[in-house]
């Protein structure tokens, strides 16, 4: 995993609430046995019509969305299945952060483990972002802040351990493997 310190990018806005993991990456693409290449199927049924042609009205198909690394989404983004293919598809497409007022628990955990930054903001901040699609924002992991193009800084919650893993680009497996002695002891006493 690459270290994640700061990110400056324009936003893509998808205002709908409850965007579920079946929209992010439909089940028919889950028969893969690798992590790569899922970006091509991201939001596929919203991006393409039944004949496979791009729907020009869908936000990711608009020219101004190219290169945007921050997705602003409605409340409860990522609800539904535990498929880690959802953050894999978002990352493969080029997103590095998702901003919402609420993210589904499993999605949030999966995102962090892959270096996709989950950013929870208040209603007012979300409202401003929704009203200013394409705005340039800056995310600072060490400070835990989102800076809007107005210069306003907004703090977002990020627990210490997740921050540590993001900043150093380390994953949790190493931390768990370092606790083998404690795990051995637990198995012996239980």
């Amino acid at each position: 995993m690459e270290p994640f310190t700061t990110l400056t990018s324009r936003t893509v806005v998808m205002p709908a609430a409850n965007i579920d993991t079946d929209q992010i990456i439909p089940a028919r693409f889950l028969t893969t046995t690798t992590r790569q290449g899922l970006g091509a199927q991201l939001f596929t049924d919203w991006r393409y019509d039944a004949a496979g042609a791009a729907r020009p009205e869908f936000v990711l198909n608009r020219p101004e969305s190219a290169g945007c690394q921050v997705l602003v989404a409605g409340r409860n983004f990522g609800c539904g299945s535990s498929r880690e293919h959802a953050p894999w598809a978002l990352l493969d497409h080029g997103f590095r952060a998702v901003i919402s007022t609420e993210l589904a628990d499993i999605f949030r955990g999966n995102a962090l483990k892959n270096g996709l930054l989950p950013v929870i903001v208040d209603e007012a901040t979300s409202g401003w972002l929704m009203g200013n699609p394409g705005a340039q924002v800056r995310l600072d992991v060490a400070a835990g802040t989102l800076t809007l193009s107005t210069g306003i800084h907004v703090s977002f919650p990020l627990e210490a351990f997740a921050r540590h893993c993001l900043l150093r680009g380390v994953d949790e497996l190493g931390h768990l493997l370092d606790r083998r002695a404690a795990i051995d002891a637990f198995e012996q006493r239980s």
Binding site: S82, I106, G109, K113, L173, H175, L176, E187
Partner: peptide, 20 residues
């Protein structure tokens, strides 16, 4: 509870998960 694939790897390797 349900977990993602990275955590499936954690449990396979350590029989444990990091959880709040």
């Amino acid at each position: 509870f349900g977990i993602g694939t990275t955590e499936v790897g954690h449990v396979l390797a350590t029989q444990c998960l990091l959880q709040r």
